[in-house]
Design a protein around this nucleic acid. Sequence first.
DNA 1: ATTGATTCAATCTTATTCGATTGATTGCGA
DNA 2: TCGCAATCAATCGAATAAGATTGAATCAAT
Lengths: 146, 146
Amino acid sequence: MENKMALNNQLCFSIYNANRLFGRFYQQILAPYQLTYTQYLVLLALWENDQRTLHDLGRELHLASNTLTSLLKRMETAGWLVRLRPEKDRRQLIVQLTEKGKTAQDQIERDLSQCVSENNLDPTKYQQLLADNEKLIAALRGIVDK
Amino acid sequence: MENKMALNNQLCFSIYNANRLFGRFYQQILAPYQLTYTQYLVLLALWENDQRTLHDLGRELHLASNTLTSLLKRMETAGWLVRLRPEKDRRQLIVQLTEKGKTAQDQIERDLSQCVSENNLDPTKYQQLLADNEKLIAALRGIVDK
DNA sequence: ATTGATTCAATCTTATTCGATTGATTGCGA
DNA sequence: TCGCAATCAATCGAATAAGATTGAATCAAT
């Protein structure tokens, strides 16, 4: 090991690059849908649990209203979802998928699995890296979350 | 495995979260220096090789002028570096650390190693995760780079 | 030497992130 | 009920990212 502080020995830099590359990877797949990477993450969350509040969505994505408000407005304009004010508490905002948002799931998952199989990504390594990353995240959360 | 497409089974989401947490982690350490995470990456690159062109810096950081130009201008304003037009090719931009930029290295590295040791991050796991992540990056580059 | 292609940083626009504040709405205690 | 605290989404400002274009400077081939 030459230099411990060298850029290429920094895990943060490695994660930084991996994140940007995932962005480009999904951009290729999502281009036909005019969806961004973050917007796709919102759809993933809604495909699991539809009709939830901005607050609840933000809890899963670790995003607050400063990011989500404009993100969701753009997705509403694009027709993926609708934003509703519930009568019982008009401070809240309910996010609900449209038909377009619901039906896109099948096609996008097909596009993705095709791309993954074409590129021979090893499922075992994928799961191992995911598990290790989650441990890192837990450690980081222990440090940064007050 | 319940749902392969669930948000929490997505490696991209795990990387996305890890990246944001690293941002917050470094933000804590870098706050006294008024440096952002990305600006710290620029300093790391310059501590290894000072006096290089924007182009060369961008090759290592995988960033182009659209991101680097304003980033470097802010860092020049803050006194970390100077931006110079070389006589021999005035299209280029040379980036050079100031004394402030050079001398900050020791203190920041001390702050970092202290924070790492306080939080018992395992160096072996760190290296393993780094190596695995680099493999992922290589695979992703194979897909997204034309 | 002049034109035409190439190489650069800079600029512009759009989309996140995120700390901080604002303002509307609700709930709760006196 | 009256007022204060708490809870929300929305807004604001700054800093990345990144595709696309621009314009200056250089190089190459006539």
